[in-house]
Design a protein around this nucleic acid. Structure first.
Lengths: 208, 208
DNA sequence: CCGGCGCGGAATAACTCGTTCCGGTGAGGA
DNA sequence: TCCTCACCGGAACGAGTTATTCCGCGCCGG
């Protein structure tokens, strides 16, 4: 065997731990913490990824892919636009990987790989499709842009609860609180909807 | 003059900058960044506060006081419970100082000064009063606790937009989205409401 | 029983950040 | 005008933290 084969089980645990840790503490979080959460040694991480940045890139790719899958399955499963939209939201929330991690490039926007760039395009396209359809059907308020949805998602993530269990519970709790507003029951929204560039730009400088 | 008098103008700019920076980056943010934002040298900060921790404490005290004032003025200005509640929310949002900074103790809960502890008690008392009144009047959904409100607030803060102007706009935008849900138009909330201890506990470990 | 592939975690070298120190500057009195 | 002194900005220092590498160990297949 020319290329040594590492336990694939490890890969999964590492990426999952990295997602969790980066989501909570930002890119500045120590690699050792990721290793600890994954229950492996730091060397095992560096044996698979040349450096921290590439690990983060991998996490983002996985998370973005997950959101894409969630969107595609929601479109496929629901005929009604609003139902598809809602299913997408809940799906992402449950996937937890969620948008919180997808969002921040962690480093300067320039260093994003072509692969991730493509995935982002696809993800945006899908979300836009979901939003537009629901809006056309009069089931989603007209003054809400697709990038708004993204930001709202980010906000749904509670800080750092003790356990992930509880965090998930709170996420669903606050999503429920948001849904009536999304359907358009309130006053018109002040301000202008962000565009995607703004959303990405907003999250670059810091880590979180 | 026995005690030298420093420019009070500086104090204000320093605390305001510290609030901004801590809110965005957490307690881990470098002091130098605060100094830069305030347009002063680091020494000017240390000339007024013995160390970073005390500066943070000062920020929290100022922010908590501000929330208290906002609550008191809302209670005094509006007879209708829901109106008072809504005014409180908007007021805090506009004060921006807001809850994002009030919340995190930044360090272990033990090290909180007696003064701040007292302010917190008062703040919680007031928020609870606002929530209970609105709930009693049937204007706020019954399954929403006062600590929920606090967490929601935290979530309203957009990450790090380029300018504060835009951030404020987005905060108001998303508050609007939340209001219908708060009034009780949606499905019952899943999960259980957090209590205040949980809220504080949730935000201790990390910085943000 | 032996060889070697991974593994965990200690060791290293760089870097960041809190805090302190120091020379500069400008206002005000002589 | 010149001197003094209070105050300022920013460079310097030392402690602590972290990405990355290195090394000896244990397990698995033969």
């Amino acid at each position: 065997m020319p290329t040594p084969q590492y336990a694939t089980d490890y890969d999964e645990r590492v990426v999952s731990a990295a997602r969790e840790v980066f989501a909570q503490q930002g890119f500045a979080a120590p690699v050792s913490e990721i290793a600890e959460l994954a229950g492996v040694g730091v060397a095992s991480i560096y044996r698979r990824y040349p450096n921290k940045r590439e690990l983060a890139e991998h996490v983002r790719i996985a998370a973005t892919s997950r959101v894409i899958a969630e969107a595609e399955s929601a479109v496929a499963a629901e005929a009604e636009p609003w139902s598809a939209f809602e299913r997408f939201l809940r799906g992402c929330l449950r996937a937890h990987a969620g948008i919180g991690v997808v969002l921040p490039p962690y480093e300067d926007a320039e260093d994003v790989s072509e692969e991730l760039r493509g995935l982002r395009r696809r993800m945006i396209e899908l979300i836009e499709q979901l939003v537009t359809a629901a809006r056309r059907a009069g089931q989603l308020r007209a003054d809400l842009g697709s990038a708004d949805v993204f930001l709202l998602f980010k906000h749904l993530n509670p800080p750092l609860a003790t356990d992930e269990e509880r965090r998930a519970e709170l996420r669903e709790r606050y999503l429920e609180l948001l849904l009536p507003g999304l359907r358009g029951d309130g006053a018109p929204l002040p301000g202008s909807a962000p565009d995607w560039d703004e959303v990405y730009r907003m999250c670059v400088p810091g880590d979180s």
